[in-house]
């Protein structure tokens, strides 16, 4: 599925023609445009919708685009929404200030549909990756802060770059995150990686518990890759 599908994109611009133009291009991208022409409407709109990206005109009466940007970046729940500034050719200095204040990019008016679409798509996709990274960090923190230590007898059934399957004598709850001190990880010199339970399926003599490996470094992944290659190496006669 297209990553930009059904995302809400908020546009704040006092120029009706520019609002209309952005509306059409956002619609063509398969996203939903939410258009406002006054800074005062911003907070209510952010509260009412889940916004994936904000397009903000630099030159507006009342609160300037820079002031609006500062306010967005001060609110923890909104500060990670990418903001793209819409600007005329004459606003070079303001653009620099906006980027320093946390704007992700800028688009020079008049809006070129191709450039607009390219930049917005890229930012939405990048933000998706950032969200994924945040999730991994969250899961690691959750596992680190857990106070329950589980003593579990488990045997490594198989291991890949994305996950590990353990054979256990009883099922583990789905979504549970824990640190593994399996001997295999000691041998590979991977320090107790966090695992997240995806499923527990009954099998002969117990359960196969599939887990996702969270937040492994590239060097850890290389070790697993090498381990698998060595295991799969044909035995010499």
């Amino acid at each position: 599925m297209n990553q930009s599908q059904s995302k809400n994109i908020l546009v704040l611009d006092d120029n009706k023609n520019d609002l209309l133009m952005t509306k059409f291009v956002i619609m063509r991208m398969g996203c939903k445009p939410i258009l406002i022409d006054k800074s005062a409407q911003l907070i209510a709109t952010l509260q009412a919708h889940t916004i994936s990206l904000i397009l903000l005109d630099l030159d507006m009466p009342g609160l300037s685009g820079i002031e609006v940007l500062k306010r967005i970046k001060r609110v923890p729940s909104y500060k990670n929404i990418p903001v793209v500034m819409l600007t005329g050719h004459s606003d070079a200095l303001n653009v620099k200030t906006a980027i320093q204040l946390g704007a992700s990019d800028y688009i020079v008016k008049p809006i070129d549909p191709m450039i607009f679409e390219g930049k917005i798509k890229r930012l939405i996709e990048t933000n998706q990756t950032i969200t994924q990274k945040d999730w991994i960090e969250y899961e690691i923190k959750k596992a680190q802060s857990t106070e329950v230590k589980l003593t579990y007898i488990a045997q490594v059934f198989s291991i890949g770059e994305m996950g590990i399957t353990l054979k256990t004598n009883q099922p583990l709850p789905r979504e549970m995150t824990f640190f593994s001190d399996a001997e295999l990880f000691n041998e590979l010199e991977i320090a107790q990686p966090p695992l997240k339970v995806e499923s527990s399926v009954p099998c002969e003599g117990g359960y196969l518990v599939k887990c996702t490996l969270i937040g492994l470094s590239e060097s850890d992944l290389k070790k697993i890759r090498l381990f698998n290659q060595l295991l799969m190496r044909p035995v010499n006669p």
Partner: peptide, 12 residues
Amino acid sequence: SEAHKLKSSAAT
């Protein structure tokens, strides 16, 4: 400021 606004829709 008004000239600034007007130029954008003219260019579009």
